[in-house]
């Protein structure tokens, strides 16, 4: 869809043309859903959040003044909605060392040290995704959103700057920080998993001897 006709849709929508707004929803709902999913981690929440974002957009569309692109605008609404949604409906994921030590969970490079069968590729992939999602959520919000929007949603740096209202330099430096911190979290998780496995091995060996 060309810019011209999209602008027409927006104008019509802000004048109350619901069909025009429906067209905009059709154009953007996939992308908005995806970003919500990346933030929230499950389909139901993502759908609900995307819905909320479009409701807000509908109410605010008459204020759209074409200074930025609709894409940027709706994305910003979505990111805001995601933050809101997380706070309202999702528990804060606290990355705690104790948690790691007590669970049998392991980093993706380790086998699960229990009597379950070895995970097949799909199970491993799901575990990875869940793990990564937890770790991203454990990042401070202003870093997590950059990671999501750039690495997962693949927005350009300029789009990121526009959506988050930052300059390009800040976008890149935050991205660097976000990635670095994520790596550190993952390393920590792996180290804890190693400790857990070592503990498990040791106690298994001890009980064997008895």
């Amino acid at each position: 869809m060309s810019d011209v006709s999209e602008n027409t849709l927006i104008k019509q929508a802000s004048q109350g043309d619901d069909e025009a707004f429906a067209s905009l929803v059709e154009l953007y709902s996939s992308r908005i859903y995806s970003v919500c999913f990346s933030f929230l981690g499950n389909r139901q929440d993502a759908e609900d959040c995307a819905q909320e974002a479009f409701i807000k957009a509908y109410k605010a569309i008459s204020k759209f003044n074409f200074k930025a692109s609709f894409y940027t605008w709706i994305y910003r609404i979505a990111v805001n909605s995601c933050h809101d949604y997380r706070r309202k409906y999702q528990k804060v994921v606290i990355h705690s060392l104790d948690q790691d030590l007590e669970t049998e969970d392991s980093s993706v490079s380790m086998q699960i040290a229990d009597d379950n069968p070895l995970p097949d590729e799909i199970a491993l992939a799901n575990e990875t995704k869940e793990l990564i999602h937890q770790e991203i959520q454990a990042l401070p919000e202003y870093l997590g959103q950059i990671l999501i929007l750039r690495d997962i949603e693949e927005l350009s740096y300029q789009e990121l700057a526009d959506v988050l209202n930052l300059n390009l330099g800040t976008v890149k430096s935050r991205l660097a920080r976000a990635r670095k911190q994520l790596m550190e979290q993952l390393k920590e998780r792996e180290q804890n998993a190693v400790k857990t496995r070592q503990k498990t091995d040791r106690s298994a060996r001890r009980s064997e001897r008895r």
């Binding site: 619901d18 707004f21 429906a22 929803v25 059709e26 709902s29 996939s30 859903y33 995806s34 999913f37 990346s38 499950n42 389909r43 759908e47 995307a50 819905q51 479009f54 409701i55 509908y58 992939a125 990875t128 995704k129 990564i132 690495d151 997962i152 693949e154 990635r179 994520l182 790596m183």
Partner: peptide
């Protein structure tokens, strides 16, 4: 992270919107 993990995350089938999502969204908007 970029070469292996990201593709895994991006290709998550759950990350793809349902076909009729835009319809149900519009209904909710109305």
């Amino acid at each position: 992270w970029l070469d292996q993990t990201i593709p895994l995350i991006r290709n998550d089938p759950e990350r793809i919107a349902a076909d009729n999502l835009h319809v149900s969204i519009m209904a909710a908007v109305k």
